[in-house]
């Protein structure tokens, strides 16, 4: 009975609350329209992955083609190379680059000198403000076999210049280590903020118990970062299949292609350069579905340990 009256009351209230608050809805309207038109409308276009899209007939009018494009992709000789490269770069990134901002934050948190702390942080932030084009430009200039600083050092010690950018086996390392250089400092902001919020009495209690700095770091600081780190890790897993197109695309050349071709660059080549819209939409959808499944699974696992997105 009670719930019935409540529902009725809510229904009666709804129009009035909107009438009274109409300008609140006016404020949110452009944002809602943005998401509907710019984010959800393209999802309607996903159907071309199951169609033979032709520009003349449009998204709706093109004839259905079933799973043809997916089958073509799975049978493609490049399929396993793409999967291997995509996962390889992502997993390398998670293993090596992901922990760096956490370590950096733990160290910065131990610094008492204000000037030193501020300087280190400001310097560490700087590369974050460089664009991807500039970053890749710097990497290429430094690693150039003829004019680059790194090879100048190698030559100084009597070594032979290394052709870094055209060597497929070095691609992953260059990608990940340049990313650490660029983003470690900035990504640590969140963790530093969490560490700054730890209750000081915890530290005092540990000191009275005779715990040294290392012990305090391991037993107080590290556990306090776990929830935040788990959330960040879930998002990392959710984008495991689309490793930064922007950077890989710029670092790619004909000679390193065997390790730099990833799904996102393949979709770009096939779709936008090759105009195979339906095929590349299918590849893209395959990618999105795996990402979506991964984020669900990882979130589920994380929920058992008490921290999750929802």
């Amino acid at each position: 009975m009670a719930s019935g009256t409540k529902g009725g009351a809510a229904r009666a209230l709804l129009p009035r609350s909107i009438r009274k608050n109409w300008d609140l809805y006016l404020l949110v309207l452009p944002v809602v329209l943005y998401f509907l038109l710019l984010k959800y409308l393209p999802m309607y276009g996903i159907q071309i992955a199951f169609k033979d899209f032709s520009a003349a007939k449009g998204i709706w009018g093109s004839p259905w083609a079933g799973f043809k494009h997916f089958e073509r992709f799975f049978d493609n000789y490049q399929f396993w190379t793409l999967i291997k490269n995509t996962l390889g770069i992502s997993i390398f990134q998670i293993l090596v680059a992901f922990p760096m901002p956490i370590l950096f934050a733990l160290l910065v948190n131990e610094v008492r000198g204000k000037w030193f702390k501020k300087s280190v942080q400001s310097i560490a932030f700087m590369p974050h403000f460089l664009s991807t084009v500039v970053l890749v430009g710097i990497v290429m200039a430094f690693l150039s076999p003829t004019t680059g600083l790194v090879n100048n050092v190698i030559k100084l010690f009597g070594g032979d210049p290394i052709y870094f950018m055209t060597e497929p086996s070095l691609f992953k390392s260059i990608f990940v280590f340049s990313d650490i250089w660029q983003n470690m400092g900035f990504s640590s902001v969140l963790y530093i903020a969490v560490l700054a919020g730890i209750d000081k009495s915890l530290y005092e209690a540990a000191m009275i118990d005779g715990a040294g700095k290392m012990k305090r770091l391991i037993h107080i600081a590290v556990p306090s970062l776990v929830p935040t780190a788990v959330i960040m890790l879930i998002f990392q897993f959710g984008s495991i299949m689309d490793v930064g197109f922007e950077k890989i695309f710029l670092m790619q050349n004909d000679l390193n292609r065997s390790s730099s071709s990833v799904i996102s660059t393949y979709v770009y080549e096939m779709g936008l350069l090759g105009s195979q819209f339906s095929f590349s939409a299918a590849v893209g959808l395959f990618n999105s579905v795996i990402n979506f499944a991964l984020i669900m699974i990882v979130n589920q696992v994380a929920r058992r340990s008490g921290t999750s997105l929802w």
């Binding site: 409308l41 999802m43 276009g45």
Partner: peptide
Amino acid sequence: LSLIFTFTLIFNGGLVPTYLTYKNML
């Protein structure tokens, strides 16, 4: 509304459908 907005973080139309929608429809 928050849910509708946040959902776009974990799923999107993908490059090609987005490109076609933006170019041809919008």
